[in-house]
Simulated scan of single mutants.
Amino acid sequence: MNTWKVDKSASTVGFSVPHMMVSTVTGTFEEFSGELQGNIADLTKTKISFQVIVASIQTKNRDRDLHLCSVDFFDAETFPEMTFSSRAIYNDTDGRYQMSGDLTVKHTTKRAIFCITPQEVTVFGATYFVEGEIKRKDFGLMWNRAIEAGGVMVGEVINIKMSVVICKGEK
């Protein structure tokens, strides 16, 4: 079975979440790794795993990043890593795929679904655009505050968008 590794220098792991009912906070995780085992041209015959280092979060606001790593949110000291392991990948429309698997954040593992859109696939590797969304409270990310004018500080749904480049790994 072929093993392909995520090229961290060419890939991005991003997210966005509504903030204060009027804006959106965007960010990235700078430290991550991943592996695809199988046929990069037919993802229905692959197994994908991905790991993200929580403390590598970047939102262009140091105080917010520290708060996100605290026990109020990710508790990065106790749970330093988020993981994903695919269970099934199906053909979707227009050459895209639907991938379901187990996402673990903090102490909670839940099923998550991502859409994968191949951007480029060659004999040397591939580039995929991956997107999905999760409900943060499903994973124990509970902190929030009411806003005086109505609403809350942090939205419920986190949008995830990744550009993933893979290259041949060791067998």
Rank of each mutant, 00 (worst) to 15 (best):
M142N: 12
S23F: 02
F84A: 13
P80I: 15
T104S: 10
L103G: 06
K137E: 12
V121H: 07
P80S: 13
F124S: 15
S11M: 09
P18C: 01
D65T: 11
K168E: 14
E31M: 07
R87T: 13
S86R: 06
T117E: 12
Q98A: 11
P118S: 07
K135C: 08
N91D: 11
V52C: 03
K60E: 06
I40Y: 05
K135E: 12
N2I: 05
T3I: 15
F114E: 09
F74V: 12
I160S: 01
K135R: 13
V152T: 14
R62F: 01
I89E: 07
G140A: 12
C167V: 14
T117H: 05
V154W: 06
K168P: 05
A112R: 06
V52H: 02
E120K: 15
G14V: 06
S49G: 11
F124N: 15
C115Y: 00
D42A: 05
K168L: 12
M153C: 02
T26R: 14
L141M: 09
R111E: 10
V154P: 08
V164F: 01
I147F: 00
Q58V: 09
D65R: 10
V152D: 06
C167R: 15
S70P: 12
D72K: 10
T59S: 06
V152I: 08
I48K: 07
S23H: 02
I134W: 02
V22R: 06
S9M: 09
P18R: 07
F114P: 09
F73R: 10
I158Y: 01
S100Y: 01
V71P: 10
D7S: 12
F15W: 09
F124E: 15
K45Y: 02
V121M: 10
D94E: 14
V71A: 14
S9C: 01
K168H: 09
Q51D: 12
F79N: 14
Y90T: 14
D7V: 15
A76N: 04
D138P: 08
K161E: 12
E156Y: 00
V157T: 15
G95Q: 09
M21R: 04
G101C: 10
M153I: 08
N159C: 04
I160K: 01
F124L: 15
E156W: 01
V154M: 09
M21A: 05
V6P: 04
K47N: 08
R87Q: 13
T26F: 04
P18Q: 02
K171C: 11
V165E: 08
M99N: 04
E133S: 13
F79Y: 15
M82A: 12
K168F: 01
A126M: 05
D138V: 11
G101V: 02
F129N: 12
A126C: 11
M162I: 10
G150W: 01
I113T: 13
A55H: 03
S23Q: 04
E170W: 00
F29K: 06
V154D: 06
N144R: 10
N2H: 04
D42S: 08
Y90K: 15
T108H: 04
S100L: 07
E148V: 13
R64Q: 07
Y128I: 15
T127P: 00
V54Y: 00
E77L: 10
G140E: 07
L36A: 03
S16K: 13
T109D: 02
K171V: 14
V152F: 05
G34S: 03
A126P: 07
G155A: 09
G155P: 08
